[in-house]
Simulated assay, not measured.
Amino acid sequence: MSGALPRRRLVPTEVAALAAGVPAATVRKWASRGRIRRYGRPGRAEYDLDEVFTIASAKPPPAHTTHSSN
Score class of each variant (00 low, 15 high):
residue 25 A to Y: 04
residue 12 P to S: 01
residue 45 A to N: 11
residue 29 K to A: 15
residue 19 A to H: 06
residue 9 R to K: 13
residue 32 S to G: 04
residue 42 P to W: 02
residue 3 G to M: 13
residue 40 G to T: 05
residue 40 G to V: 00
residue 2 S to K: 11
residue 25 A to E: 14
residue 47 Y to Q: 03
residue 18 L to Y: 11
residue 17 A to P: 10
residue 8 R to T: 00
residue 60 P to T: 10
residue 61 P to N: 08
residue 14 E to N: 10
residue 1 M to Y: 05
residue 67 H to S: 09
residue 43 G to Q: 07
residue 16 A to F: 00
residue 33 R to Q: 12
residue 9 R to E: 14
residue 29 K to C: 07
residue 57 S to C: 09
residue 70 N to E: 13
residue 47 Y to W: 06
residue 27 V to T: 06
residue 58 A to I: 08
residue 46 E to P: 06
residue 31 A to T: 02
residue 53 F to I: 06
residue 10 L to C: 00
residue 6 P to V: 04
residue 7 R to C: 09
residue 39 Y to M: 01
residue 8 R to I: 00
residue 47 Y to A: 05
residue 38 R to E: 09
residue 46 E to L: 15
residue 4 A to E: 15
residue 47 Y to C: 03
residue 10 L to H: 02
residue 58 A to D: 13
residue 21 G to S: 08
residue 50 D to T: 15
residue 56 A to I: 08
residue 59 K to A: 15
residue 24 A to H: 03
residue 37 R to K: 13
residue 62 P to W: 04
residue 14 E to Q: 12
residue 54 T to N: 11
residue 52 V to M: 01
residue 55 I to G: 02
residue 34 G to H: 09
residue 1 M to P: 13
residue 11 V to R: 03
residue 44 R to L: 08
residue 32 S to E: 08
residue 48 D to F: 01
residue 25 A to T: 13
residue 59 K to N: 07
residue 62 P to L: 08
residue 48 D to A: 08
residue 28 R to T: 05
residue 32 S to A: 14
residue 38 R to Q: 14
